[in-house]
Design a protein around this nucleic acid. Structure first.
Lengths: 232, 232, 232, 232
DNA sequence: CATGAATGAGACTTCATTCAT
DNA sequence: AATGAATGAAGTCTCATTCAT
């Protein structure tokens, strides 16, 4: 335990050289695997080291500790997804295609990594034990930003329904995605990413779209009736 | 009805006396709290014992170990939800109301427990470390059975769209629910269960419905109303 | 590392029973030895355990950690000295005898313990690493209180010189004592406690006394004696 | 003049070039700071290296290990004090002034270093863990030699009392000094070196001086009486 | 039945030190 | 000569679990 952590800098090495950078990458790659397979608590530094054939101490040469390592893993993974989305999003295409891209990209990145880092993020992110809340919330925000933006644009243009709060729309999109992912994880079944993504969008789209005018009116009628009946 | 009868037989002691049964219930109740608050790894047997004001050893008198205890907790919790759904589901009412009941019941049971046992189930369930996969899959199946049944009936009757696999429809329902729950957990925000459930169903319903079916339904409603009003 | 130390109580056992109290005493006794021999840093929990023939974990069953253990050791040791002084101080006797008692008691307790716990206290007490400052300062104050009180009384009665700040007088007494102790420790030489104490007091007393006072006192003694002898 | 010539030969590299000598000096300077601030155990080689902006390995190029480095630090520091005293001691002036010079010089060297290297020496010196005892005893002897010499001369000339062993007289001088130093360190208070030194000498002097003849006689009378009374 | 007591196994982390380049 | 890189050895601490009473 450091006596005066604010005075003494503990990080031994700044990963500057090519070799060091490679090491950092290796450790991050393997750590991602291990954290994903085992979750934060069951992941051990010794397993990470052993898979790399290096000493445990070497891991701590490059990362201050298990928590920091995990945060880097998660942060990098977020960055990848965010970058992939921001780079590839076809902004000039119709909204529906953009959504499709988003869903496909997410599913692909989640599943191709071969593991369930998502579970790590989702389940450990919330825990009060790991005090990562601060950083995670920020990452989460950046991560959902593209979808939020897309939905907001849709609402503004009138293409998407405006009678439902953005938050709920977001849940409507991410929710099933994550559910599918978990199902894939639990059942260990192989999923056809492209077709699943397309199916999901096909399913979601009508729910997101602004209802046609007649529908809108009719729905209001029905809702009014329900309220009236509820009062009886 | 115990969730895992094959486990129950392995128990050390048959809870014969009333006193012993009470003990078992107490331990399960508190364990549920602790597992929910902390997750499997961060939950400790000592905390469970301390909250009950009993010795750690006593816990092991009634349960073979931490894992078994956790499995009982999860199993019981599944049983409750399943029972609540099976008991209360208004099978004779329109499909939409049945769905609404399902969603409300789930949200209520998840949130009223005050905690995120769901997170425990969802995140720890998958882990290869805890070898609970077998039992969990079975429970999961029973747990989703009512919804699957409902959806199947809808498809059969033509009320729900048939061009999408059941599994995906299920994800469409459970996914946003869980997403909402997590959001509620992470942001610590209080959620209005009833209205959230209704909003969600309102949002989902059009997506589940056979295309054009909604329009048809509403039109019939309007016509029926006109007739009815004309009779007054 | 505890996730929520403020929520979960970590101490497993309250040392209530006779057996437990004996254990606590044993651990404290051996810990005192080890800390004294090795100093805080070089003392190891495993050595403490091994000397007792118990497992390391057992030590942590009774004490939250190494630091707490050390604090208890030091605290108890202070308590002993303080109690010995407060109990035995012959308040009705002349000041010089009281001082003699103080010096003897200190030297005896320091040296008879067979070790240099004093070095531990003196050298580790100041360190910023161990954040024990708070408690130590309080103990230190209680520990020096009897001497300070004695000196203050002497100044008030005019027996001790008033032209020197109390703090310096205290250093004049404790300083040589500690120096002697260290010398004894370093050279490993056996010290004749009683005579050393008396020598030291003989040396200190004139320096502490109000100037000229000694002369006056002695003259009066001689005169009194002459009268007394004349009476025989 | 190196403090420990027998160690110097064991050094890996003879500091031949001017550059190398500078390196050695730099490392020693910074090491002194670090050892003083942290104590032997809590000082780390990496902190020394970092403060110099060099690699840890470089430190080991010039010194065989941490222990040797520390010994050099301590040895050099002793050398400085010894040299300062031997050079500046005004041997032709009255004894009291010589003592004053000694005390002032010590306090100044100890305190100006800004740190408590003294604590390092005093507390770590004794430890059986660091086997530095041998060399330290020699250094200690050289270090106290000037004072011992001064006291011996005083006794020989009859200026200082002869009825107390030299060792005790030395403790009477060094003891309060060290006590004052520690107090200064612990309380972090700024000390006026010159006036403190003078106060201390003023206090000590009467105790060291040969008592006037009358006093001496009277004291013996009193002591005899005490013994006689003790026999009753 | 309940528990006080003890512990084995293992976790994370630190640091002086070595060695090839 | 200097260092980047790696590590063995060791340390503190946690926790599920066992067992005699």
């Amino acid at each position: 335990m450091p006596a005066c952590p604010d005075i003494a800098v503990k990080q031994r090495r700044a990963p500057a050289s090519a070799k060091a950078e490679q090491r950092v990458r290796d450790i991050l790659r393997v750590s991602r695997e291990v954290f994903a397979e085992r979750g934060y608590e069951r992941a051990t530094t010794i397993e990470i080291a052993q898979r790399l054939g290096i000493s445990e101490a070497t891991v701590f040469t490059y990362f201050r500790g298990k928590r920091e390592l995990c945060m880097r893993v998660v942060g990098d993974w977020y960055d990848e997804i965010i970058a992939a989305v921001e780079t590839g999003l076809p902004r000039e295409r119709p909204l529906r295609e953009q959504l499709q891209f988003l869903v496909r990209t997410h599913l692909r990145l989640f599943l191709i990594q071969g593991t369930d880092l998502c579970a790590l993020v989702l389940s450990e992110g919330r825990s009060k034990g790991l005090q990562l809340g601060e950083e995670f919330v920020a990452l989460q925000r950046r991560y959902t930003a593209p979808l939020m933006d897309l939905l907001a644009r849709g609402q503004a243009s009138g293409e998407l329904r405006q009678d439902i709060p953005l938050r709920l729309l977001r849940s409507l999109v991410f929710g099933p995605m994550e559910h599918m992912l978990w199902e894939a994880i639990i059942t260990q079944r192989q999923v056809d990413i492209e077709s699943s993504a397309d199916d999901l969008v096909a399913l979601l789209w009508p729910a997101l779209q602004a209802p046609a005018h007649e529908l809108l009116t009719l729905r209001r009628l029905r809702d009014d009736l329900q309220v009236a009946i509820g009062r009886c």
